[in-house]
């Protein structure tokens, strides 16, 4: 059985078990290593991807359920202002949580271009960061929001 889906703008047809976790398909069959295994339990957020624009835990989401859908991973954010904002704020230590967090930030800013701090914290609260870089991450999302708004205004 094959499953067709769009990942970061490219159409793929995968002959894989539809019950395979989306995360395994992305990492091992599409060589997209940015989405990360943290718990497999939808508890930490390291695996977060967008499916039709909505943040989804790729670790527990079955591949078959995203057939025909649009998946975006952290690799799609290479030129997005979020990336530059995280560098500017030096938002990270070990960095393992950051790809999922960037994805959630993208979803938030798509929906809410000027989030206030409480909205950012509420959106990121499903993510765990063990190194304690939460404030740098929050400031990076604020910075990205400003960059996006200014970019849109030009």
């Amino acid at each position: 059985m094959s499953i067709t889906l769009t990942v970061n703008g490219h159409a793929h047809t995968l002959a894989l078990d539809p019950t395979m976790p989306l995360l395994d398909a992305l990492r091992n069959h599409l060589d997209l290593k940015g989405s990360r295994y943290g718990c497999g339990l939808e508890q930490c957020g390291a695996c977060m991807v967008l499916v039709d624009g909505e943040p989804v835990y790729a670790c527990a989401r079955e591949l078959g359920t995203v057939a025909g859908r649009r998946v975006e991973t952290v690799e799609s954010l290479d030129t997005h202002p979020i990336r530059a904002a995280f560098i500017e704020e030096q938002a990270g230590q070990c960095g393992y949580c950051l790809s999922g967090i960037q994805i959630t930030a993208k979803a938030l800013l798509d929906r809410t271009p000027n989030p206030d701090r409480a909205e950012i914290i509420a959106a990121l609260d499903k993510h765990l960061c063990r190194c304690g870089t939460q404030w740098r991450i929050i400031r990076a999302v604020e910075r990205a929001a400003v960059a996006l708004t200014e970019g849109a205004g030009r």
Binding site: K33, G34, R36, V74, D78, I87, Q90, G95, Y96, L98
Partner: peptide, 22 residues
């Protein structure tokens, strides 16, 4: 001086960890 971290760009972009080695 506060030089930017060397490891951060790769960690933000994708494959950076032992978990990602192929």
């Amino acid at each position: 001086t506060s030089v930017a971290r060397r490891d951060l760009p790769a960690k933000l972009a994708g494959a950076a960890f032992i978990h990602d080695l192929v």
